[in-house]
């Protein structure tokens, strides 16, 4: 896949950043509105998918290498496990020990906000990695011949 025309590339350049910021917003406000870590992670992935489709797999792989996606994926999973392990300060796995705050405030719900962020990192990095792997693997047979 070589990438698309310059119209598609310019529009993608304008829009993709906004899409990814929206993904971060959705995963930050998951405890107040519909959305959350899963939806936010998939939105971030959709922004990267736009970039990959518009600019081609090789260019995207230069910017965000597949191996770096593995590291981000693993660190997201580790962060979620860490959030769970922090509960031991209060007596058990997954105990929500932070203060609850007031309902409808951004900082509320204790461990739910960091858990959402960890999940969105994990989902986004994992799915971007496998999408990049698929795009790059698709090119393989033609380059061998």
């Amino acid at each position: 896949m070589k990438g698309m025309t310059s119209i598609v590339r310019d529009v993608t350049r304008l829009v993709a950043g906004v899409v990814m910021v929206y993904g971060v917003y959705v995963s930050c406000t998951g405890h107040l509105t519909p959305g959350g870590g899963f939806a936010g992670g998939v939105i971030i992935m959709a922004g990267v998918v736009m970039l990959v489709l518009a600019f081609g797999g090789e260019r995207a792989n230069e910017l965000l290498a597949e191996s770096r996606c593995h590291v981000l994926d693993g660190s997201g999973a580790l962060a979620f496990a860490l959030v769970a392990l922090l509960g031991f300060f209060a007596g058990g796995f997954f105990v929500n020990f932070l203060p609850r705050g007031r309902v409808h405030q951004l900082v509320s719900g204790g461990m739910i906000l960091p858990a959402n962020l960890a999940i969105s990192l994990k989902v986004a990095a994992g799915l971007i990695g496998i999408f990049l792997a698929l795009v790059l693997a698709t090119r393989q047979p033609s380059s061998q011949e």
């Binding site: 998951g30 405890h31 107040l32 509105t33 519909p34 959350g36 870590g37 979620f80 496990a81 769970a84 796995f93 997954f94 929500n96 609850r100 705050g101 007031r102 309902v103 409808h104 509320s108 719900g109 204790g110 461990m111 739910i112 858990a115 959402n116 999940i119």
Partner: peptide
Amino acid sequence: TGVANCVMGILLDYRAYDTL
């Protein structure tokens, strides 16, 4: 849980093991 979205409260607080 202190959240406004009950689904997220169940997913990440009451039933966080499922999410893990």
